[in-house]
Every structure is written in structure tokens, then in C-alpha cells.
């Protein structure tokens, strides 16, 4: 009986075509469930898109229905009044450096905690988890005062550092989960070859935890892109505002701005989705590469 051979879940095939000739009942069931779930995920996007493409009056007449006519006015206003382009640029200038900084610091820290013999590493990891457990709302004012004291208020660097610190515990923790699955033999072999910890991390560990690192970058980008309250409080000046603050500020009068807010939100979804596509495509390559190894 070759049930195991028949089950690719754990065995990414080199010959992906093989599945096509033999559709199993299980696979069909998975496909049907996935299709239904996918529909539930796509529909809200269509809802935003249709709201962005119609007039407010048309939206109010039937919010869930189909547009009776299309307009590009909302997108024009998203650029001219909401300044979505400038907001997006502001966000990128904060989020991209923060995401890179987090990735570097988290990689080093997780590597040290899992694979280098650090005394108290367990305790340190527990402390990292504790740092995630205090609600950020409580930290808002202490962090704000700190940023003010060091003279980084209304300075992008201030927000970049705060974002890095806020997401670092999560990131370190995530990477330790992946570091643990790195086969020890490989590290040992690298050690025997005379590689120091830096080279081992760079040329042995990083390629192996790439899926985790890609995921980390994608998620951090998404979380920081959508962050509102710390950005609001640290970058107080109109010109430096990030995208979610800009949109939040614009939607105070929803009945007048449905379409524009929808257009803004639709546009704001593009960068995280691009990041996702970019890194996940890469991940698929990593997957097959891993399988051929």
C-alpha cells in the first residue's frame, strides 16, 4: 500500500506534474473547501474596489450592491485631497528601514539565543516574551516621553527606532522557532571547517531559515504599514504623517468621503501585497531548492 507515497503533503515533488493524472478524492475536497474560503477572501476586496469606483450617492443607495456607474473621481481625490502618494512615501521611509533593522537585529539575537551558548538564554527568551505581553497602549505615553527627551519627536528616526523595538520581541521569538529546526550537524560541520559564528550565521543558518526570514519581513512590513497610534503620536506634523494616520484623519466624516477612503484603502493595500508576492514567490523557489538538496 503506498498511501505514504501518494501523499505529497510532506514531500514537495520534484515532478509537480505527477499529481495531475491522479486526482484523489482528498485533493478534490481540499480544492472545494479552498475555493469557498477563497471566495470569502476575495469578496471584501471587490466590495472596496466597487465602493472606490462609484459615487457616494450610488454607494448609499445600495452599499452592498453593484455600482450603477463608474467614476475615477475618488482615485483623483485620493491623490489630490488625501495626498495618498505623499502619505505612502512617508510610510515607506519609516517602514522599510525599520523592517530591515528588525530583520538584522532579530537574526543576530535569535541565532545567539539558540545556537551560541549564552548563559541565561532561556531567561532572556522568556523576558522577550514578557515584553510582548504588556499592551502597547500602556507603553504609548512612557515611550512618547522618552522619544521627546532624546529629542527625536517629529523625527523619522524616532519612529523607526520605536517600531524596531516594538516588533523586535515578536521577531526574535519567531526566528528562534525557526533556528531550532536548523540541523545541528550542519552547524557542527561548519564549525569543523573553521567557520566562526558570523560566517556560520551568514552562509549556513540564513539560507536554511530563509522561509522564516521572508515571513518575518512580510509580516513586519504589514504590521508597521498598518500601525496607527504610535505613528500618530510620534510624527505629529502634517507633512510627515504616515498612510494609516492620513486615512484615519480623513474618514472622520465618512458620509462625505466613503469613496475616497475606499480608494485610499485600496491603494494602501498594494505595497503589503507586493511585498507578499515578492517574498512568497521567492519562498516557493526556496522550497523546491530545499527539496532537491
Amino acid at each position: 500500500m503506498n498511501a505514504a507515497a501518494d501523499s505529497p503533503p510532506l514531500r514537495p515533488r520534484l515532478t509537480a506534474r505527477r499529481g495531475i493524472g491522479r486526482p484523489s478524492v482528498g485533493k478534490l475536497a481540499i480544492f472545494v473547501i479552498f475555493a469557498a474560503l477563497a471566495a470569502s477572501c476575495i469578496y471584501p476586496l471587490l466590495f472596496v474596489a466597487s465602493t472606490a469606483l462609484r459615487t457616494n450617492a450610488d454607494y448609499r443607495a445600495s452599499p452592498g450592491g453593484l455600482p450603477s456607474s463608474f467614476t475615477s473621481e475618488n482615485f483623483e481625490r485620493a491623490f489630490s485631497q488625501l495626498h495618498i502618494g505623499r502619505l505612502a512615501l512617508n510610510s515607506l521611509m519609516v517602514v522599510v528601514p525599520a523592517v530591515i533593522l528588525i530583520a538584522i537585529l532579530a537574526c543576530c539575537a535569535a541565532y545567539a539565543l539558540v545556537h551560541l551558548e549564552i548563559r541565561l538564554s532561556r531567561l532572556l527568551l522568556a523576558a522577550v516574551i514578557c515584553m510582548m505581553a504588556l499592551p502597547p497602549t500602556v507603553l504609548l505615553i512612557p515611550i512618547f516621553k522618552l522619544v521627546l527627551d532624546v529629542g527625536l519627536l517629529n523625527n523619522r528616526l524616532g519612529l523607526i527606532l520605536v517600531y524596531t523595538a516594538l516588533n523586535l520581541p515578536f521577531s526574535i521569538y519567531l526566528l528562534t522557532a525557526f533556528m531550532r529546526s536548523v540541523p545541528v550537524e550542519l552547524l557542527r560541520a561548519a564549525g569543523i571547517d573553521g567557520a566562526g559564528p558570523v560566517r556560520t550565521l551568514w552562509s549556513v543558518v540564513l539560507p536554511l531559515i530563509r522561509p522564516g526570514l521572508m515571513t518575518l519581513v512580510t509580516l513586519n512590513f504589514l504590521f508597521l504599514w498598518n500601525e496607527l497610534i504610535f505613528s500618530l503620536v510620534i510624527l505629529q506634523q502634517g507633512m510627515g504623517r504616515t498612510i494609516m494616520v492620513g486615512i484615519a484623519q480623513f474618514q472622520a466624516q465618512p458620509e462625505k468621503n466613503y469613496g475616497v477612503v475606499a480608494a485610499g484603502l485600496l491603494l494602501s493595500m498594494i505595497p503589503p501585497l507586493l511585498i507578499f508576492v515578492f517574498f512568497q514567490r521567492d519562498l516557493a523557489r526556496g522550497l523546491t531548492a530545499g527539496a532537491t538538496k
Binding site: L140, L228, I229, L232, V233, G238, V245, A248, Q249, A252
Partner: peptide, 14 residues
């Protein structure tokens, strides 16, 4: 500077 109505308390308190 425009402040979002929903969250203005947070920035004012800070």
C-alpha cells in the same frame, strides 16, 4: 495639523 477625530484623545493626552 489635522488630527484624526477618532484618536485625538491619545495625542492630546500625550
Amino acid at each position: 495639523t489635522a488630527q484624526p477625530y477618532e484618536n485625538y484623545e491619545a495625542i492630546y493626552r500625550a
